[in-house]
Nucleic acid binder design. Structure first.
Lengths: 233, 233
DNA sequence: TCTTAATTCAGTCAAGCGCCTTAATCCAGG
DNA sequence: CCTGGATTAAGGCGCTTGACTGAATTAAGA
């Protein structure tokens, strides 16, 4: 395997081309539907084993793409967290969850593939775990989670975890959906990434702040908040 | 191709076995990662072309699985809508969005594969469109959307559409996540499908009811609701 | 200038794939 | 009981894939 030629060595450039090609192809067709050969060829390599040589396996290729972008997002998130530290507003911390990703997407020059790529990669059963692990390692994300825990002290842990997962799903899949619409030239619900981010912050803030219907530990509870209804027919 | 042997003919039974095997394998490994041969073999067929014979293509196989379940969910949703008709509470209509799916999942005998299967199928680029089309055709879903539009008249259409998409993503992926955790024997944020449904209704209701930050038609607006911040470093 | 290690090229190979064919097998209606 | 259409078994064909290899090509340093 090639050493991680970080800079503009010969191999480093090839690596970049492979990463770019992989990101695009995986975003368009799904990770499993694209062979390493196709990635190698799309990257302009005559050697059909180029991916194997530079990355070892498809899993490591995908992780390399993820890491490449994660780095930049993590930086932006660190900035956002620094500016938010001390705030008592849930919305401010949700902002830290959403804006870094959105701003990074907006900063990439179109056409972008990242959002769709991430949605694909996160859904692939064999890739889900390692990618989420990388997420768990982010210190900034950890700080945001801690802040939300502090601001929502009455909320059962299970509810907060559940809602964190919801926030993640919304961010990933709504961005992917917008990116897809953008690419296909169709209509996008929002005119800009900026506006999409605002919509996501509105929604995710509402999710975290929503009153949680208490669920009885076991057995039927007094009510689950559903309307009057019992046998309609 | 086989006629749609609906009942318990010889071919009908094989069809069922193929559908069950496909649902399981696709849920576990992803649609693209499973070959038609593997599905045929898992269904106990010696003929590696069994899928082709009975369904024509992988796409039609997937759609057949979707339709099989959709039918039952649609029935439950019709009941729920009938019981909710006339209600002015957003939550009641969100209930109609969530409960039918959740209750159907809860009614299936474990282990279930449907939720993960749907998440996989919806993410597959080539399958997304036809599946969403089937969704659009549902008259009950149409009625729910109409009701929500009626109850949220001030909300820009783009915001409502966006939030409908959010609701769909949350329902699909949160169920898939719980089902996965259930299958792997890990911890589930909620003890029961019932409680998961309640959590989803809480969250999705909040999303629909959330105040939408107005986005200026063009150019920088007065505020996007973000905290005081301008150059943290 | 000359090494030399890293990288790319240009293939090979077995395994698995989609698609197709032919021959058995099944079973409902005559 | 027989027959014909539907279904399943068994396997072939051409192609792509992942994994691998040895020779050519760079390019950076001695």
């Amino acid at each position: 395997m090639a050493g991680s030629a970080s800079a503009s060595t010969r191999g480093g450039e090839t690596r970049e081309q492979i990463l770019a090609a992989a990101e695009r192809l995986f975003a368009e067709r799904g990770v499993a539907a694209v062979s390493n050969r196709q990635v190698s060829e799309a990257a302009g390599q005559a050697n059909n084993y180029a991916v194997g040589y530079h990355f070892g396996s498809k899993t490591e290729l995908v992780l390399a793409v993820v890491r490449k972008h994660d780095q930049s997002v993590e930086l932006r998130r660190a900035e956002a967290v620094a500016a938010t530290r001390g705030s008592e507003r849930v919305r401010d911390w949700v902002h830290c969850l959403v804006r870094p990703t959105i701003d990074y997407l907006a900063a990439l020059e179109p056409p972008t593939w990242l959002a769709r790529f991430l949605a694909q990669a996160m859904t692939e059963p064999s890739l889900r775990a390692p990618i989420l692990a990388a997420n768990d390692g982010s210190p900034t994300l950890r700080e945001v989670r801690a802040a939300l825990t502090r601001l929502l002290p009455m909320q059962p842990e299970e509810v907060r975890d559940e809602r964190s997962a919801m926030a993640r799903h919304l961010l990933v899949h709504m961005c992917a959906e917008r990116e897809r619409a953008l690419h296909e030239g169709g209509e996008t619900p929002r005119a800009t990434w900026e506006a999409t981010g605002t919509g996501l912050i509105d929604a995710i803030t509402a999710v975290f702040l929503a009153p949680a219907t208490p669920v009885p530990p076991r057995g039927r509870g007094p009510s689950d908040g559903s309307p009057r209804r019992r046998r309609a027919r």
